[in-house]
Amino acid sequence: MTLFRLAGDLSHVLAILLLLYKIWTTKSAAGISGKTQLMFCMVYVTRYLDLFTSFISVYNSTMKVLFISASVATVYLIYFKFKATYDGNHDTFRMEFVIVPALILALIWNYAFTFFEISWAFSIFLEAVAILPQLFMVTKTGEAENITSHYLFALGSYRALYILNWIDRYYFEGHWDPIAVTAGIVQTVLYGDFFYLYFTRVIKGRKLQVLP
C-alpha cells in the first residue's frame, strides 16, 4: 500500500467521521444533502458486496465495514432521527440524473459482464458524481458552515490522494485500473471550484460563501 493511498483512506475516514460528528453534536442535518448521503450509502453497499466472498486483509475488511456502517448511520440521522432539521427544500438535485447514467455506463464499461463486476463499476461511477447534490445545495443556499466545508475538503482530498497513489502504482507496479482512474479524475475535478473557495476563504477564517 502506498503512502498516498493510506493518506487518502485516512482522509476518507476523517470526512465521514466529521460529518457524523457535526450532525450528532449540533443535532441538526441543516446544510447537508440527504441525497448525496443516500447515494454514498448505495456506493458502499454495491462496491463491497465482496466483503464476505473474497478476503483481502484485515485492514480492507475493517474499512469496508466502517464505511458501510458509518454511511448507514449518517442516512439514519438525516432521514429519521434529525429529520425535522433536514433542509429538504434546498436538496433539489434529481438523483436519477446521475444514478441512471452511472448504471448504463457500468453495463457498457466493466471488467466482466457479471453481477459483481457491473455492481462494482456502477459503484465507482456513482461515487464520482454522488457529491453533486451537496455541491448544488451549497451553491443554492450560497454558503456552507465551516465544518461542512472541512468535510467536503477531506472528502475531495481522498480521491485526489488516490490519483497520486495510482500514478505511483503505475510506475512501480505496472498496475493500472482505467475505470477507477477515469472516475477518480472526474470526481476530483468536480471539487475544483470548491477547493478554490476553501483555500481562499475558509482557510483565511471566513465562512464559505458562493459569490452571486
Partner: peptide, 10 residues
Amino acid sequence: QPAAASKDEL
C-alpha cells in the same frame, strides 16, 4: 500487464 480492477483498494 492487463487492466485490472483495484479490488485491494477501497
